[in-house]
Amino acid sequence: METLLFYLFSVVAVGSAILLVSMKNIVRALFLFFVVLFSVAGLYVFALADFVAITQILVYVGGVLVLMLFAFMLSNKELLNQLQNGTSHFFALPVWQALFIAVSFLAVLVYTMVQATAYEPEWITASRDAGAIIRPTDNTVQHLGVHLMTHYLLPFEVVSVLLMMALIGAAHLTRKEDRI
């Protein structure tokens, strides 16, 4: 069952991402982005990174995607028409350039994967020998929550105030006023 769910999340994430970049309708693309982010959060759960999965949902889905929807709703209609009518191809690049970029990224990923499996860093082997391996029964969220609300409370609050200021600034810039 776990393998089936993993492949389901993977197919949904990759398929939605491919549809996302090929969409001309911005609203549908934003909702496909929503599906991609949730699928990636599901993949994080399978990687035993439960805190990252929850953060993915709270920060990206709850914050960034909603901000993008607000930016879309507050944007100028003529600008959106120009953006949607700008390209008539699958990508704005010619096909051979897009294919070259995709193959280059694939080559870098394969090279990195081969190097990582061939030459394992010392800190990984040392932690494996010491028995410091994350197991599915470990509760990492509790430890991260305690550190976030005790040792790192000030940086956490500073980041939240900066994000709120950015949101207020974006809303102020998009506000339409009568110019005198």
Rank of each mutant, 00 (worst) to 15 (best):
residue 52 V to N: 06
residue 44 Y to G: 01
residue 81 N to C: 06
residue 93 L to H: 05
residue 66 V to N: 06
residue 27 V to H: 15
residue 96 W to Y: 13
residue 156 F to K: 05
residue 135 R to I: 09
residue 166 A to F: 14
residue 32 L to P: 00
residue 114 V to N: 07
residue 5 L to T: 11
residue 92 A to V: 08
residue 84 Q to R: 15
residue 1 M to W: 15
residue 114 V to S: 09
residue 136 P to T: 03
residue 132 A to L: 13
residue 110 V to R: 07
residue 60 Y to K: 02
residue 15 G to K: 01
residue 45 V to Y: 09
residue 141 V to P: 00
residue 27 V to Q: 15
residue 58 L to E: 09
residue 134 I to Y: 07
residue 70 F to E: 10
residue 168 I to K: 04
residue 108 V to L: 14
residue 67 L to N: 10
residue 93 L to F: 14
residue 34 F to N: 12
residue 70 F to T: 11
residue 141 V to T: 05
residue 153 L to G: 05
residue 121 P to F: 08
residue 57 I to G: 01
residue 104 S to K: 03
residue 179 R to N: 12
residue 125 T to R: 10
residue 68 M to E: 12
residue 61 V to N: 06
residue 74 L to I: 08
residue 175 R to I: 10
residue 20 L to G: 00
residue 98 A to S: 11
residue 12 V to C: 04
residue 175 R to L: 14
residue 132 A to F: 13
residue 68 M to K: 06
residue 107 A to T: 08
residue 131 G to P: 02
residue 123 W to Y: 15
residue 24 K to S: 05
residue 149 M to V: 08
residue 110 V to C: 06
residue 21 V to D: 04
residue 48 L to C: 04
residue 117 T to C: 13
residue 124 I to D: 08
residue 4 L to S: 13
residue 154 L to H: 14
residue 35 V to T: 06
residue 172 H to I: 15
residue 151 H to P: 00
residue 15 G to V: 02
residue 29 A to Q: 07
residue 79 L to P: 03
residue 167 L to W: 13
residue 147 H to Y: 02
residue 123 W to I: 12
residue 67 L to M: 14
residue 101 I to C: 06
residue 103 V to R: 07
residue 124 I to R: 09
residue 51 F to D: 01
residue 84 Q to E: 07
residue 120 E to G: 09
residue 155 P to S: 05
residue 33 F to W: 07
residue 51 F to L: 03
residue 129 D to H: 15
residue 179 R to G: 08
residue 78 E to K: 15
residue 47 A to M: 12
residue 178 D to N: 11
residue 55 T to F: 14
residue 34 F to H: 12
residue 156 F to W: 11
residue 125 T to C: 05
residue 134 I to P: 00
residue 104 S to N: 09
residue 151 H to L: 04
residue 82 Q to P: 01
residue 76 N to W: 11
residue 104 S to T: 12
residue 9 F to L: 08
residue 54 I to T: 09
residue 121 P to L: 07
residue 43 L to Y: 03
residue 14 V to S: 04
residue 56 Q to G: 02
residue 87 T to Q: 09
residue 11 V to C: 09
residue 49 A to D: 05
residue 28 R to W: 08
residue 25 N to C: 03
residue 81 N to L: 09
residue 48 L to T: 05
residue 18 I to A: 06
residue 49 A to M: 10
residue 170 A to F: 13
residue 124 I to L: 14
residue 108 V to T: 09
residue 52 V to Q: 07
residue 45 V to K: 06
residue 127 S to H: 12
residue 29 A to I: 02
residue 17 A to D: 01
residue 148 L to C: 02
residue 42 G to N: 04
residue 76 N to I: 07
residue 176 K to W: 11
residue 97 Q to S: 10
residue 31 F to Q: 07
residue 48 L to I: 11
residue 67 L to P: 01
residue 166 A to K: 05
residue 102 A to K: 06
residue 96 W to Q: 09
residue 81 N to P: 02
residue 12 V to M: 04
residue 8 L to G: 11
residue 180 I to N: 15
residue 42 G to K: 04
residue 22 S to P: 00
residue 100 F to H: 09
residue 13 A to N: 03
residue 21 V to H: 03
residue 167 L to K: 06
residue 37 L to S: 10
residue 104 S to P: 02
